[in-house]
Design a binder for these strands. Structure first.
Lengths: 354, 354
DNA sequence: TATGCAATAGAAAACGATTACTATATTCGC
DNA sequence: GCGAATATAGTAATCGTTTTCTATTGCATA
């Protein structure tokens, strides 16, 4: 392999093989065009001698597709997104695409910056877990991008392709389960309810309470409002500890807690245990996400499963199908929550509902 | 914003503004070239009316730099790599580069495939946590890539830039700490010792034992040999459980365990507790990695810190400095281990060494 | 023996931006 | 007021590939 300073071009090969550059191009990338076997061999030999690698920018300029997609998520240290990203990558790999992952850190400015970068790079499509709450902005972007799928964090009333999750149903399910287990005084703990998903989850909680004929007690909603844009597990964990402290300082403890995510639940449980309040004996907790750790902590966390892999896979499929102009059976998917029963909830008295 | 089917080119703008395309180019991307204010304004207006976005492929073809780098790691669901990736991204963002993340799943074939893809894309540099154990291969790649830095998993005797970790020292440190705490019968548990890093860690363990005048007992080395290429946390966790079972089935339990990583340690602890063996009362455990969860489990894991953020940051800096031909003070960095004392090790009797 | 079509290959025109040359018009130093 | 330097803008070449035209064969059909 001759590695002179510069990389060999198609005309270097042409010269060496004694043919025109058109012929070289046809040998290299148009298998259907007839070229005499002898010539073809000469070209192939010359190419390998010169260690020829086509210049991708030139090919792109001539209009071939880059097979790159952009993927924007809030944070990769959040295990939910790590799993999601893993699924996206696998799907892309199978279909010959390269994903470019970007992390918005829950910052609209960063999200915009990444979106602009992806547009500059002329990716063929974008997958976005969106932290913008701006309708016009989204319309703008999705019009400009060849293909565009919202996932995880979607936008209420968004008309385009999306793979979202029934957060409302999730909030309901978690709360109803606690009610069924005989708990009545159920608190809700969360970081800032900024995102749509959290609001929905909270609404689900309230709905389930109301549905059970219980009045909603605002003092049982404990929020940790901190506008540090930080989506790390550690942060959520500490947030959970903080929230548990707040709860511990109230007049009396609730029967149970609905936490807005697993990490917060785990942080809260840890703090409670530290203060001598045992889970689930003294208080029950249900989380949300079903990240890997949740089954590994003690007590293992009862939680609502949010299917990260499924979300990533479906969203990627829709996006790639759009890019390739394949028919998309369903452009708007809403994944349903399911309960994962483990050890953090105590059944006070059986109260089976039909 | 007029969005006709095709995107506007530089000559569309030239036509609309009544100037030559050279002038447009100079206005758009050569601020130092003098252009009359009136003309400049005409060009700028035309550009914004046509919503002009330069064609990046054309720019690349003319030799401007892509400011893209490739980053290959085994798996993103491993929290150590998630943190590392996060640091790489941050560093890239600051310096205006776009990282393309690829996951090798510990498969040399996939690693090769990704490396080839990155070469095709003509990235300006590559960061690799390498699963190949092939010298020639590495030499080949690093010669072909404009800039190349090995990190995390490096290669013994590798001459190029690298940011690695003193795994041997880590194994020593973990073992010595247990010895200092008064433990004598110390087991080593691990998944397959395939990677260089694991072998080194294991060697450190043996060295510390020998150094303390203890004979190395091969029956205290418990390995889980499974060539499933799976680097997920869940897998390691189950691997840890399996290893603990193996240990439990031996004639009598060791005093302490050195685990090859945190996830395996956590899995083992969980299994031990399930079988009524309490950590650290009955047996002590020290992990390796210091992933976020390790401080959150109960008992909190005593472990060796492997600085993920530092590794990612330093490796990226070296790579980008090379790309930009800045002087690199130190091309080969070996990060040192440090012990994080938490709750999973019991001090049998104080035996202070100087 | 024309005629037409497939096989084969080269010349040259794209793709869109940058930039090395030119070519004017100004302006400056003296 | 004259040559030299500078400001300003256009022409055309260039980056490396693909692809549309052409052009020449060879061969089968009528």
């Amino acid at each position: 392999m001759a590695l002179q300073g510069k990389r060999a071009t198609i005309s270097d090969i042409a010269k060496r093989a004694g043919v025109s550059s058109a012929t070289v191009s046809r040998v290299m990338s148009n298998p259907s065009y007839p070229v005499k076997p002898a010539l073809r061999k000469r070209v192939l030999d010359a190419a390998s001698q010169l260690n020829y690698k086509p210049n991708i920018f030139s090919q792109m300029l001539k209009g071939s597709s880059s097979r790159e997609i952009g993927v924007i998520i809030p944070s990769i240290t959040n295990p939910f997104y790590a799993q999601l990203v893993s699924a996206v990558e696998r799907e892309c790999l199978e279909r010959g695409y390269t994903p470019i992952f970007c992390f918005s850190q829950n910052s609209p400015e960063l999200e915009t910056r990444h979106l602009e970068m992806l547009e500059r790079k002329q990716v063929e499509g974008t997958l976005l877990s969106c932290v913008h709450l701006n309708d016009a902005f989204l319309a703008d972007i999705s019009a400009r991008t060849p293909a565009f799928v919202l996932f995880d964090q979607t936008y209420p009333g968004y008309e385009g392709d999306s793979v979202s999750f029934d957060f409302f149903g999730g909030g309901c399910l978690a709360t109803k389960y606690l009610l069924e287990c005989g708990h009545r005084d159920i608190a809700f703990i969360s970081g800032p309810i900024d995102r749509y998903s959290r609001r929905q989850y909270f609404d689900g909680y309230k709905h389930a309470l109301k549905d059970a004929g219980l009045r909603f007690n605002n003092r049982r909603v404990v929020l940790f409002n901190d506008d540090i844009e930080n989506a790390s597990s550690e942060y959520d964990y500490h947030c959970g500890q903080e929230l548990a402290s707040l709860l511990l300082s109230s007049e009396y403890l609730p029967d149970a807690i609905v936490a807005v995510n697993d990490m917060i639940a785990i942080g809260a449980i840890r703090k409670l245990e530290q203060e001598g309040v045992h889970v689930p004996t003294d208080i029950s907790v249900v989380g949300f996400d079903n990240i890997a750790i949740s089954s590994l902590v003690s007590p293992a966390l009862t939680t609502i499963d949010q299917p990260a892999v499924e979300t990533g896979r479906l969203a990627t499929r829709i996006l790639l199908d759009r890019i390739e102009n394949k028919p998309v059976e369903q452009g708007q998917i809403i994944l349903q929550p399911s309960l994962v029963e483990r050890e953090s909830v105590r059944k006070v008295h059986r109260k089976v509902r039909r």
